[in-house]
């Protein structure tokens, strides 16, 4: 197994509001190996996006703040690094793309200006070299008419094309890690297929590790090597994709997989997980999933299970007892 390039240990991120401290990420651990595609999957409010913003040092602050744990990049803790240090990492070592390609590009600057800025921030290149690199990047992400595109504005491009530009910008300095926060959620299925294909291709060619943050288990199954399942600010299960889909070890993961309507078969009723995700900040004792769990035991309501296991970890008494 290759080196972990990014390692998150016991990360806790909270939002401080008028109602007090609301923990959005509550002590999570995972690591990303060089060149792999790691999925982080979970439903809205599980803390997956906050995790990514914490790594990038882009939490809206106030009210967001990292209150505990460490984030190691190449062995160095960057969880409380200075802004100037983070600026050098951002875009250069760790890059990020976002969910809304429609609004993630600045509407009043050309594609060229925005793309070249991303390159120039971390490289000293002549104007000619800059343009060449920008054209090269646009070709890399499969955009036609690269030269003309440099002079165009974001509103002249479709959603799929804009997301390609975002990817070109993120890849501009050959980052070690690319964090993709729901990159295809706002796109149509056929365009999503194009973008996922492109990301897999880039991963193979450049060996940039990708953290794929998504709510779509389909995307995870088709793209990722390993996956981290999050629920209410905690990691509930982690392992290789095939292990998790074939033998889920947490009732939440299991329920999630079964709730998806099947494209290739028809069942009369869908499996459901009763209730809904707990509101962040609500106080709980025991396992956070206990109120919705169909296998709940007495001790689940009292004690909090730990995340245990070797390559396939889960946070559930049921499976830990079996093992």
């Amino acid at each position: 197994m290759s080196e972990a390039i990014l390692k998150v240990e016991g990360l806790k991120t909270s939002f401080f509001t008028d109602d007090g401290e609301i923990p959005a990420v509550d002590g999570i651990d995972f690591s990303v190996n060089e060149g792999e595609i790691l999925g982080i999957v979970g439903e809205s409010g599980c803390g997956k996006s906050v995790t990514s913003l914490s790594i990038m040092g882009l939490l809206p602050s106030p009210p967001g703040k990292i209150v505990g744990g460490h984030i190691f990049y190449k062995g160095e803790d960057i969880s409380h690094a200075k802004e100037s240090k983070m600026r050098k990492l951002r875009g250069n070592d760790i890059a990020m793309i976002f969910q809304e390609p429609m609004t993630s590009l600045n509407p009043v600057f050309t594609i060229g200006e925005q793309l070249m800025e991303a390159i120039r921030l971390h490289n000293h290149l002549s104007k000619k070299a800059l343009t060449e690199r920008a054209v090269e990047l646009l070709k890399l992400v499969g955009l036609p008419r690269a030269k003309e595109l440099l002079k165009e504005y974001p509103h002249e491009l479709s959603g799929g094309m804009r997301q390609r530009v975002m990817i070109a910008m993120a890849m501009s300095c050959n980052p070690k890690v690319l964090i993709a926060d729901e990159p295809t959620t706002a796109l149509d299925v056929t365009i999503q297929a194009q973008i996922l294909d492109l990301m897999i291709k880039l991963n193979r060619e450049t060996h940039t590790a990708i953290i794929m943050i998504t709510h779509d288990l389909g995307v995870v199954a088709q793209m990722c090597n390993r996956v981290v399942v999050m629920y209410a600010g905690k990691v509930v299960e982690e392992g290789l994709v095939k292990d998790i889909f074939n033998h889920p070890k947490h009732p939440y993961t299991e329920g999630l997989i079964q709730s998806i309507p099947d494209l290739y078969g028809k069942k009369d009723y869908l499996h459901t997980i009763k209730g809904s995700v707990p509101k962040p900040g609500s106080i709980h004792k025991g396992c956070l999933f206990a109120p919705r769990c169909e296998f709940v035991m007495d001790k689940c309501r009292v004690n909090t299970p730990e995340l245990l296991g070797d390559s396939h970890k889960s946070r559930c008494f049921l499976h830990q007892e079996k093992a």
Binding site: V189, Q192, D197
Partner: peptide
């Protein structure tokens, strides 16, 4: 074919438009 299937065993042949 473009729909990502939530099963790592099924690798569909995607027709990319």
């Amino acid at each position: 074919s473009a729909v990502p299937v939530p099963d790592p065993e099924i690798k569909t042949k995607r027709i990319i438009l």
